[in-house]
Nucleic acid binder design. Structure first.
Length: 311
DNA sequence: TGCCAGGCGCACA
DNA sequence: TGTGCGCATGGC
């Protein structure tokens, strides 16, 4: 939520470019607030963030989504891709197994979508995420962008905003300077990853065209990238829907619900997740993650299509 | 003050 | 191959 009075931040309409998409089963609040992405701020019914170095305002509507940004905007493909507006959620849900635990989570949080984040931003963000709370990750990334990103155009009356710093910028940064953002021991990981991208030993764009195990293995070669971070990048940044990140919350729910509380190793849980939940296991993971993390905060939506399918 | 967080690397058994 | 600990930081 934004800190200031939202009414004062409303942009001057005619100066902004606007685009709408008709899309169903899309809950913007859930999608931007579920912990898969760290740079969006809610301001009433609006969400304000930065995508591909552009200031963006999003608003949910009765038939879909509306977006506004600072012109010129030759094409909106970049934002459509980011928001994944072309994906029918029903197609995803139809692949899920008849599993009570998952169907309950879907019923509670239907409309939660996965974004397709810029790969470098996704990798850098999740490198900084280890052993931190989501709120702390947001703070660190905000400081990182303020200090190392470039100022971008924002509408009149809005606070300044910065792009996410590219690998070229961070590859030459000093560790002690990065640590001032509050990232601690993760600073060296970030610098090494940036250097790998810059020197070409890690080609993130090429990884999109590789099979999931190949892309995952390439990410695992980076210092500071373990199975969980690699799967987050595969899922949120590279578009591998079969990736199944196992963090503390997902491990907890899997052990509780599927293994009788036994201490199964995270890698075994990831294998189970990919096999049991199918080609969109990553989507299932995000529903289980959000459901477990917000346990007890939302009632089941009685009559939800997910439950009506019978499970 | 202690615990824990969208983990990971490393030493050791 | 599995286990335990240290690593920075900040909120509760």
């Amino acid at each position: 939520m934004c800190a200031g009075p939202c009414a004062e931040l409303r942009p001057v309409g005619p100066s902004l470019s606007e685009q709408s998409w008709v899309v169903s089963d899309y809950d913007l609040d859930l999608t931007l607030g579920c912990g898969q992405v760290f740079r969006w701020r809610q301001c009433g019914s609006l969400w304000i963030g930065v995508v591909n170095g552009r200031w963006v305002e999003l608003q949910p509507g009765p038939t879909g989504l509306r977006a506004r940004t600072v012109p010129p905007v030759p094409s909106w493909d970049w934002l459509a891709e980011y928001l994944q507006v072309h994906l029918r959620l029903e197609t995803v849900l139809a692949t899920f197994p008849e599993d009570v635990r998952l169907q309950e989570a879907v019923a509670r949080w239907r409309g939660l979508r996965l974004l397709r984040q810029p790969a470098w931003e996704c990798l850098a963000s999740f490198l900084l995420s280890s052993s931190k709370r989501i709120e702390q990750i947001q703070q660190v990334i905000e400081r990182l962008c303020r200090q190392w990103g470039d100022p971008i155009s924002v509408p009149a009356g809005h606070p300044p905003a910065w792009s996410f710093p590219g690998p070229e910028r961070l590859a030459t940064a000093r560790e002690r300077d990065l640590r001032r953002c509050g990232m601690g021991f993760r600073a060296s990981y970030l610098i090494e990853a940036a250097r790998a991208v810059v020197d070409g030993s890690l080609d993130l764009a090429a990884l999109r065209r590789q099979p999931y195990p190949v892309a995952r293995a390439a990410l695992l070669r980076l210092k500071g990238v373990g199975p969980k971070v690699a799967d987050c990048v595969c899922l949120f940044g590279l578009g591998f829907f079969e990736a199944f990140p196992v963090d503390t919350w997902v491990a907890r729910v899997l052990r509780e619900q599927y293994f009788g509380g036994r201490p199964i190793a995270p890698e075994k849980l990831a294998e189970f997740g990919r096999r049991f939940f199918g080609p969109f296991a990553g989507y299932a993971q995000q529903y289980l993650f959000h459901d477990r993390r917000t346990a007890g905060k939302a009632p089941l939506r009685i009559g939800s299509p997910a439950l009506d399918r019978g499970s």
